[in-house]
Measured scan of single mutants.
Amino acid sequence: KFNKELSVAGREIVTLPNLNDPQKKAFIFSLWDDPSQSANLLAEAKKLNDAQAPK
């Protein structure tokens, strides 16, 4: 279960257009550290992506 959630969340995070590479890497490392938090980490990444969207 975690492997699928981890890969789905990881793929989504790397495609978020408004995150820079260090931010993406930080989220990916957090996913590896605790795969059970993949849904929460993906939600946080999406929030940050939205907040950094060009206005």
Rank of each mutant, 00 (worst) to 15 (best):
G10C: 15
D33H: 10
A43T: 08
I13F: 03
L48Y: 03
S38L: 14
G10N: 06
W32D: 05
K24W: 04
A43K: 09
A9Q: 05
S36F: 06
P17M: 07
V8Q: 12
A9M: 11
K55Y: 10
Q23K: 02
V8M: 12
L16Y: 05
P54Q: 10
N18Q: 03
F2N: 08
T15W: 11
A39R: 06
Q23R: 01
L6Q: 06
K24C: 10
I28E: 03
A9F: 12
A53P: 04
N18A: 05
P22K: 15
Q52F: 04
F27C: 04
Q37A: 11
W32F: 10
S36G: 09
N40L: 14
K4P: 12
A53G: 08
N20K: 09
P22F: 15
K1G: 12
N40Q: 13
P17R: 08
S30V: 06
L42R: 03
P17Y: 03
P17C: 12
V8R: 13
V8C: 12
I28C: 12
I13V: 03
Q37W: 04
D50V: 07
D21L: 11
L31I: 08
K24I: 08
R11I: 10
L48C: 06
I28S: 03
F29Y: 10
A39Y: 07
R11N: 07
W32M: 10
K47D: 06
N18V: 01
V14Y: 13
S7M: 14
L42Q: 03
T15C: 15
A43P: 00
A51W: 06
T15D: 12
A51L: 12
V14L: 15
D34N: 11
K24G: 01
T15R: 14
N18M: 02
P35R: 00
L41S: 01
K46E: 03
R11A: 10
L41I: 14
V8K: 13
L16G: 00
L16A: 02
F29C: 13
A53L: 05
L16R: 01
F2C: 15
P35V: 04
N20I: 05
N49E: 02
A53D: 08
G10L: 15
E12L: 13
S36W: 04
A51N: 06
F2W: 14
A39S: 09
A26M: 11
A39Q: 10
A43M: 11
F2R: 07
K46V: 06
E44D: 06
A51T: 06
K47R: 12
G10E: 15
L6S: 05
K25C: 15
P54R: 07
L6K: 03
L19D: 01
A53Y: 05
K25P: 03
A43L: 10
N3L: 14
N40P: 04
Q37K: 09
A51S: 11
K55D: 10
F2G: 08
N40R: 14
T15P: 00
L16I: 02
K1C: 15
T15I: 07
I13E: 02
